[in-house]
Structure formats: C-alpha cells, structure tokens
C-alpha cells in the first residue's frame, strides 16, 4: 500500500536547515495497523503529513497504492487526498458553523457528489459512528468524543484506503479516548489501513506494528508481542 524510500524533509528555518526526516524507508501493507511514536521533534508529524500528501518530501520516493506521489502536481495531490486518505486530528478540526452532518458532507461537496447522495452517505457515516441523533448539532453542542467521532465519519466518508490519525486521543478524556480508538480499530478490521501518530504508549501499543522515530530516523519497527488481537479485553487507554 505504502512504500517510502529514502524520504527526507528539510525545513529552511532561518539560516540553518532543520532536517526533520533523514532518510526514512518504510513499507506498510494494505489493512495494516501501525502506530508511529517518538518524542516531540522526532519527525513523526512530518512523516504523517507526507504520508497524507499534505507535505512533500525534500528527497526520496513515496508510492501510494503503486503511484509515485513525489512529482504529482498540486491538483492531483488534492485528488489523492480526497479519495485515498482520511485524516483525523488532535483538535478535530470541525468547521464550527456547519452541523455534524454538514461537516461530514464537506469532502463530498469538494468531490462534486450530488446533494442527495451526500445526505445519504453522511447519514450512513453518522450511523457507523453512532451519532445519528446528533446529525443536526453544531460542533460546540457536541462533547469532545462526539466531535472526534464526527471527524472520523468525515475522514472515512469518501471510503479512503488509508486513515491517518494525528494524536486522535490527545484532547479527550480516557473514556471517550478509548471509544475513539475502538471505533477506528473496528474500521481497520474492516480493511482500512490505519496509521496512528501518538506519544501515548498505551494508544501506540495497541497497534499491530509499532514504529519508533528519533531524530528523523526509524529506530525501531516491531510488532509488539503483548498485542493479541481479538483476545483479552482492550486495556484501558489513558
């Protein structure tokens, strides 16, 4: 699904360039569940943005579903983001003036999907995240957990291949945090490739594969032995 080769990302900040990524090689299979961890400044967010085609690598090759993205024009990248990638963020990034349903419809609006189909698909997405009753509420009328679930519904409504989560529980209490994690894990079970960036080891530890970054390099890449899918009840997320 995802193949990274020699990915570098250099920021020009003032006089001295900052090398956020220094040659990352990574291959992620379709339907995998990967967490990316590391201390702040290790480059994990940069990596996520590059994976999400929001940022371009300074050097290296990124193939998404077999397609090289590094040299795609901006409009094509928009299309890739629209159809292949779903994003969820620590701060939800819902548009405050739109209702839950309106927020979920947004990607479909830009994709030019007709209004009727949008409504139907938004309705189904809300059902999936268990917020049918909240369809007409605006974000400020929803709890944090509910907001994040709306954001998840929005991220998957275009049926992307990859869901990228940037600290998805970072702004939630433990109960709604674990709800959110369970929700995206369920989507992973249904075949969605799930990549979670977090500095919370308990969230990161749940992934089938855990990648640890430090100073812009992959320093650890394991499938934690503790992880037993479908076995013991999920540990409490804090």
């Amino acid at each position: 699904m995802i193949q990274l080769q020699g990915i570098e990302r250099v920021y020009e900040v003032g006089a001295s360039p900052v090398r956020a990524l220094r040659g990352v090689n990574l291959s992620i299979a379709r339907g995998d569940y990967v967490s990316i961890m590391g201390p702040s400044g290790s480059g994990k967010s940069t990596l996520l943005h590059i994976l999400g085609c929001l940022d371009r690598p300074t050097a290296g090759s990124y193939r998404l579903a077999g397609q090289e993205t590094a040299d795609l024009p901006e409009a094509e990248l928009s299309r890739v983001r629209r159809h292949q990638i779903g994003f969820i963020f620590q701060f939800f990034h819902l548009i405050p003036r739109l209702t839950a349903a309106g927020n979920i419809e947004l990607p479909m609006v830009f994709a030019g999907i007709p209004a009727e189909e949008r409504r139907e698909r938004a309705r189904r997405s809300l059902e999936v995240v268990g917020l049918t009753a909240r369809a007409g509420h605006r974000p400020d009328q929803l709890s944090g957990g509910e907001q994040q679930r709306v954001a998840i519904a929005r991220a998957v409504v275009m049926e992307p291949a990859v869901l990228l989560a940037d600290e998805p529980t970072g702004n939630l209490d433990s109960v709604s945090g674990s709800e959110v994690v369970r929700l995206i894990e369920r989507m992973n079970t249904d075949g969605l490739t799930l990549i979670v960036v977090t500095h919370d080891p308990q969230v990161g530890g749940r992934a089938r594969r855990c990648i640890r970054l430090a100073d812009g390099l992959v320093v650890e890449d394991t499938e934690p032995p503790s992880r037993r899918r479908s076995a013991a009840p999920a540990p409490e997320v804090t």
């Binding site: 999400g52 929001l54 901006e74 299309r79 994003f87 990034h93 548009i95 947004l106 990607p107 830009f110």
Partner: peptide
Amino acid sequence: TREIGLLKAVGATHAQ
C-alpha cells in the same frame, strides 16, 4: 486558517 488547512486535507484543490 485552520479551516482552510482542513479544506485542503479533505481534498479541496487550490482552485476550489
């Protein structure tokens, strides 16, 4: 700004 970032993340093009 955040909204614009989001629009781009969900696939809005430059022109849109």
